[in-house]
Design a protein around this nucleic acid. Structure first.
Lengths: 193, 193
DNA sequence: TGAAAATGAGACACCTAAGTCCCATTATGG
DNA sequence: CCATAATGGGACTTAGGTGTCTCATTTTCA
């Protein structure tokens, strides 16, 4: 699966670059390659040795971030247990991968360009799958599409990450705030006008 | 308040530029000035006659978008009537101003740079004011800060706009979907684990 | 320890967007 | 109808990021 032909050093450097790219680009999409290299604590020349193009780097960062988020999702075991609890685990996992999610979610066009040429790993349970399971069990709102619920999930998670970034929320309270917002919204009493 | 020293023609052109800038930049932050000028159906030279700098244009677009959103907020009369219904009017208004809101909300750094040097118009009722009023009346969740609720409001509205952009939601259903998500979240039954 | 791998710093040319003028043309308004 | 405002298109320069290359230095590993 992972490249066995790549030396340990190179592999480590590559990871550092991809992580830095996601982190920096999440906060500033127009960030310079020099800025990314600096964040990764490497020289700009070295960056070019790993990724010829800027586009090449962005592509790789997207794929890698996908992989990381997918990994987090997988570790949340969202295909097991009650959907509601699975969702809570998923939210916690997504918040932990905040940088990567912010990078993927932050730019509307990044995702679009890749949803086409991406064949999802079928061995990994999907977020939409969890949502549909929850809808079937009557836990998640069946009145809207699963994709919309997924969008809301990502948006809330991203917002929580951003709020923590700017100090609006404490780091340790993000997952709880997002979960609360996702599950019951912002209105206290059942409000039927 | 508005420039009376500016001719009708210039005023109209200026508005067109600002609207185009918000619309284009909302969808692509790195968009060229030529692209913005093209979207405004004017020449690039003309754009430079109105805004010397790119930064100048962006600043003006932010200020203008603020004004438009503020205007929409004001027309929603959010300081009158039950908070819940006021919020529904506000959401509808924000969705209508989707372009501008997406532009303001889309870039985390745009807002930060301006919150400092911005003195809010005190004659206009504020969103946070509405939220705090609702919290005081026990309608909105008093367990979290008003600012966080505002962030969630904006995030959901933005997500609704974006979903409509990519065809995930029908245009006429955005306000309803956002309102529903804001008020009751995505979970059907009252879920107390 | 010695060879190979990996890196950093810098020099360099290139390209694109940005910003500045200029001039001919069109639209506006008294 | 005419003076003037407003515009569009194009030429031009500038600035900054990008991509390529070289060479000296450091690190890794057998």
């Amino acid at each position: 699966m992972t490249d066995t032909r790549e030396s340990g050093t190179r592999s480590r450097t590559r990871r550092a670059i991809l992580a830095a790219a996601a982190s920096v680009l999440a906060r500033d999409r127009g960030a310079t390659l020099a800025a990314i290299a600096s964040a990764a604590q490497i020289g700009r020349s070295t960056l070019h040795r790993y990724f010829s193009d800027r586009q090449d780097l962005v592509n790789a960062a997207v794929v890698d971030s996908f992989r990381v988020v997918e990994q987090s999702t997988a570790e949340a075991a969202i295909d097991q247990g009650p959907p509601l609890e699975a969702m809570r685990r998923l939210i916690a996992a997504l918040v932990d991968a905040g940088d990567r999610l912010a990078f993927l979610f932050g730019d509307p066009r990044v995702l679009e360009e890749f949803t086409d040429c991406f064949e999802p790993d079928l061995s990994v349970p999907t977020t939409v799958g969890l949502i549909e399971r929850g809808q079937a069990e009557g836990v998640f709102d069946p009145g809207v599409s699963a994709e919309w619920i997924q969008q809301v999930l990502w948006a809330l998670t991203y917002t929580g990450w951003e709020a923590a970034e700017k100090g609006l929320l404490p780091r340790h309270g993000v997952a709880a705030a997002v979960t609360r917002a996702f599950e019951s919204g912002m209105v206290v009493s059942p409000a039927h006008s």
